[in-house]
Amino acid sequence: MTTLTNYRPATRLRVVAQTEAPAAIFTTEGLNVWYGDTHALKNIDLTIYENEVTAIIGPSGCGKSTYLKTLNRMVETDPAVRIDGTAKFKETDLLHATVERLRSEVGMVFQKPNPFPKSIYDNVAYGPKLHGIRKKAMLDDIVESSLKKAALWDEVKDRLSSSAFGLSGGQQQRLCIARSLAIEPSVLLMDEPTSALDPVSTNKVEELIGELKKDVSIVIVTHNMQQAARISDRTAFFLHGEVVEYGQTEAIFERPSSHLTDDYVNGRFG
């Protein structure tokens, strides 16, 4: 993990910065993404701030997931994808960074809970092991603290060695969050993390997001406008691959400057 620590700029001293404007964690300028001939993102200029929850909303096919997946370059798992423009993670040009290193700083939680077919313990320990942590005591500590951060520890502490598939959907999703947290990322990207969950589990994940933003910046794509309004500090509204409006969540929902945003957040289309 030492390489990761070295790589991270001195973000741990952020107490001083709290009164000032928040620091940018992602900056994209003129970002374009194509899937084959489909122009999915068109000239996206967006700055995402540290230690905030940023929600990305918009109808299906508007490019919000594509944008999210560009931030950790998971879009590139589709071989037909082409990207141009600039995208920075802190000061790093993320489009030309080593993806393995970028993704150890920028974690991701997917729409459908996707635990590995391994034990609960091994799911959480997977990331730290990848990055070279072998000592059992250290892994034990990481597993415990990550599960605690994901508010799952009390429910699973007595069955760490049983299969992750025995957990409920909501628990599985929190396990996936714990798995991402285990490598101490500075950002968590969440791609509709509650769309496959029941309302009670959704509520738990939302509470968790509120807790987590103390330590990590969160970018969340959501279909659920109430969710965006409840949990986010800033909201970006995407439509047809473009950003229509971006600003403080309150402003977006209560005094949107574009009639398109107004129509969408009030359920007149989408």
Partner: peptide
């Protein structure tokens, strides 16, 4: 995907 997203 889960593995790649963890930097594997």
């Amino acid at each position: 995907d889960a593995s790649y997203a963890l930097g594997a």
